[in-house]
Design a protein around this nucleic acid. Sequence first.
DNA 1: CGGTATGATTTACT
DNA 2: AGTAAATCATACCG
Length: 243
Amino acid sequence: MRLDNMLLAEGVSGPEKGGGSAAAAAAAAASGGSSDNSIEHSDYRAKLTQIRQIYHTELEKYEQACNEFTTHVMNLLREQSRTRPISPKEIERMVGIIHRKFSSIQMQLKQSTCEAVMILRSRFLDARRKRRNFSKQATEILNEYFYSHLSNPYPSEEAKEELAKKCSITVSQVSNWFGNKRIRYKKNIGKFQEEANLYAAKTAVTAAHAVAAAVQNNQTNSPTTPNSGGYPPSCYQSDGRLQ
DNA sequence: CGGTATGATTTACT
DNA sequence: AGTAAATCATACCG
C-alpha cells in the first residue's frame, strides 16, 4: 500500500536499528539526489530518527495490545465454550475482526507518521530555500582565500573542506561561493579592486608576520611567495581558456 | 519601498 | 565531475 511504501522510502519503517544510514539516504533522496549532506542535514536526520522511534514504539505497543486483546477474547470464548459449542471458524472470525480493527488503527498511525514526515520535509526544504548571508567572519575567510589565490581561485576538494570547516558552512556552499565570486569578479574587476587591495594588504601583513617569525626562529628560508601573483588583477583562466 | 548584494539553482559545456 | 553563465529568490540597506 501507499503509506507503507512512503514510510519505507523515507527510512521510517526500514531497517530498524540501521542507524543514520537509511535516514541519510532518505534525506539525500528527499533533497533530489544532491548529496551535499553533512551539516544542515544532521538536524533533519535527528528529527527523522525521532519520528522513526516514536513510530516503532507506537507500532509495537499496538502489536502488543492486539495480542493481549486477542488472547483475552480467546479466553472469553474458551470460557463460553463450556456453556455453548463454539466452532473454530467462529474463533477465527473473531480473531480476524480484531486484527482488522487493530490494523486500521495502525493505518492511522502510519498516516500520521507520514504527515509528520511530510511536514518535517517541507520545513526542511523551506529552511533550505531561505537564504542567509554568511557570517562576516566566513566571508572574510573566503575572501582571503580568493584574493590570495587570485591567479587560480579554484580550491581543491581538500581546500574546500577546510574552508567549509573554518566557515562552518558546507562544502557545496563553498563551491557556490567560489562559483559566484569568480564570475562576479571577472564580470566587473573594477568594482572589486578596493576589496582586492584590502585583502592583498591583509595577507601581505600576515605574510610579513610569518616572515618575521621565521626570521626570529633563525629559519632563513626564502619566503615562498604566497601565490598571489601580485596586485595586478591578472584574470585567471582555467588552463587555456581565454576570457 | 526600491536598488543592490548575495546565496542558491538551473542550464549547458567539456 | 566541475565549472561558467544566466537566472531566481531573498537579504540587506539607504
